[in-house]
Amino acid sequence: MSTQSSSVSTNNSQALLKGEGMLKQKQTASPFMKNLKIRSIRLAILVSFIIIWETVSGRLVDKFWISSPIDIVSTLYKWATSGDLFFHLSITLQETFIGFFLGAFGGIFVGFILGRWAFAAQVLDPFITAIYSLPKIALAPLFILWFGIGIEMKIIFAGMIVFFLVFFNTYAGVKDVDDDLLDDIRLMGANKRQIMLKVILPSAMTWVFVGLKLSVPYALVGAVVGEIVASNKGIGFLIQYSAGNFDTAGTFAALTILIIVSVSLNATLSILESKLLRWKKTNSV
């Protein structure tokens, strides 16, 4: 692995970890009231935004451009009752999750192998860097050619994006294992398998998790981009189709669904992370 490419991904992930730590500390500074204050301000911003939008639309700006919150909600309601919402959402989620699991599994697997096998990593380094630095979206047309416009193409597309993110983080995590910890457990007579299970795997876990967390939203991006490029179902298709028919309310409605999905995915991951990486907690109150 070229030191440059791996150190770039290293810094990113570390910055992420640190950024979270700082956020947490600030929140614990004066816990309840401050949280309440922050939340009320956020809610106020959201509500005023929606009110301004509703007031402006049709009066100052033509509805054709910005639709209106009420129209968007009624479109969402229509989709929900007709079953369209559930159908398209389930397609996109399927692509996202299957793509995510395939990519994550592959990324962890290859990351571990190359992390422990320095020679192979050195040989393959330029190839990996080359593929990694390619904007993956540019591959979408090729994927259509190879895999058609069905659900498989989106799964593979999302999976590939996830694969690279998880792979790089896993690789960095495995290389990051403290050699002194390895010596220590070897002195106790551990065999290769025990060293892997008791030191390398848990030690790399933090990094792997950063990779997984980063890549969930990207899996969604992969699936939706795939749908926008070529498809007849999924949220990406809804966006594309509505916009194509000058249906601004439909476009915004589809975007709203997308926001809700990605926010809930991230929230779930945060909860999972704080459970799994409990030993990292700092109890400064």
Binding site: D178, D180, L181, D183, D184, K198, V199, P202, S203, M205, L277, W279, K280
Partner: peptide, 9 residues
């Protein structure tokens, strides 16, 4: 060793 080699997790 001089340094603590405890497993943080």
């Amino acid at each position: 060793t001089q340094k603590d080699n405890l497993l943080p997790w």
